[in-house]
Amino acid sequence: MVWDTNWEQMTIAWVNQQLIEADSVHGLHHIRRVFVNVLQIAAIEKANMDIVVPAAWLHDCILIAKDSPLRADASHLAAQLATEFLESINYPSHCIAAIAHCIHAHSFSAGIPCETLEACVVQDADRLEALGAIGLARCLMTGGAIRQRLYDPNDPFPHNRSPDDRKQVVDHFFVKLLTLADTMKTPTGHKLAKQRTDFLIGFLHQLSKEIGAEPNSLHLALKRIHRAPVNDPATFDMP
């Protein structure tokens, strides 16, 4: 394995400088968690660590606002910037194109097909960040930051209307989060995503109880996106 602590220290220091103005949802803590996910998936799927590890650290190395006209090109621009950085530190040249592809293909919105196992691993690792406890926290933080309401009081779980995640945080579960497990490319990623999706559904069950939602409304909303309720609604266990 080529990647070692020296490469890692140089990369983390550089990424930290690139993201010095990042918010808490998209900064270095996010990248560290994706790195942990990559290690877990890659070890089981037997991916090339010399490619997936630097790709994990560098996949979000550029800051582009969500409302920027360049947002759709963020992963492409990140891949270009990462390539320049890796060349500047003399990282083995035979790995760089594959790393750049992982970074380019990881984005949900870009829709770039994964052409290698390593790209599949990095994409799965990044998408896991939108699920489970971390995914829930990030979703709520982002919604609060842009002043969205938590749910539509007239139809908290969208079963009589189309979900609109520009207005309600909970609607984002039905627009994107609860469908992510079906987009996972590796068996390990899919298994982990299913577990974390069940956690989110458990949270929705608890929310339904606490707000006194219409009986069966959550079930109907989940059915619309072909997502069955978890067997144990107590998956989301709050003290």
Rank of each mutant, 00 (worst) to 15 (best):
P156A: 07
R161K: 12
F157K: 01
R138I: 01
T179F: 08
D155W: 00
G132K: 07
V169S: 11
A181S: 15
A133F: 06
G132V: 02
H172A: 15
D152C: 14
T179Q: 14
R166M: 10
E115I: 05
D126G: 15
D182R: 15
R161L: 04
I134Q: 14
I134S: 13
E115S: 14
R127C: 09
V170N: 03
V121Y: 03
A119S: 15
L128H: 00
K176A: 13
V169F: 06
P113T: 07
L140G: 01
I134W: 10
Y151P: 03
L136W: 06
A125L: 05
F174N: 04
Q168D: 12
G132N: 05
D126R: 15
P156R: 01
K176Y: 11
P113I: 07
D165P: 01
V170E: 01
R147T: 03
F174Q: 05
F173W: 12
V121S: 12
I146G: 05
D155Q: 06
D182Q: 13
E129S: 14
A125P: 00
I146A: 06
S162R: 14
R127P: 00
A181D: 12
P153D: 12
H159V: 06
V175G: 12
R149M: 07
A133K: 14
P163V: 02
D171L: 10
V175F: 10
C139K: 01
E118A: 09
L117N: 10
V169Y: 05
P156E: 05
L117H: 06
G135C: 10
G135P: 03
A137G: 03
T116N: 13
L178E: 00
G143L: 03
S162H: 12
L177R: 05
Y151Q: 04
F157P: 06
E115Q: 15
L131D: 02
T142Y: 12
H159F: 14
E129I: 04
T116V: 10
P153G: 09
F174C: 11
G144D: 06
G143W: 01
T116F: 09
V121E: 06
Q168F: 14
E129N: 15
G144V: 03
M141R: 13
K167W: 04
L140Y: 01
D171E: 10
F174E: 02
A145M: 08
D124C: 08
R127G: 07
K176S: 13
I134P: 03
E115T: 14
S162I: 03
R161S: 08
A125M: 04
R147M: 04
R166A: 14
G135L: 11
L131C: 08
K167E: 13
Q123A: 13
P153C: 11
E118Y: 09
D165A: 10
A137R: 13
F173C: 10
L177G: 02
C139V: 04
P158K: 02
L150A: 04
D152M: 08
V121G: 11
F173V: 07
M141D: 08
D164V: 01
V122A: 12
R147Q: 13
F173P: 00
N160T: 12
R149A: 11
R149S: 14
V122H: 03
F173I: 07
R166L: 11
T142D: 06
E129C: 13
L150W: 06
R127S: 11
V121W: 01
F174V: 11
D155Y: 00
A145H: 10
C114T: 15
A130C: 08
D124S: 09
D124W: 00
V121K: 02
V175S: 15
L178K: 02
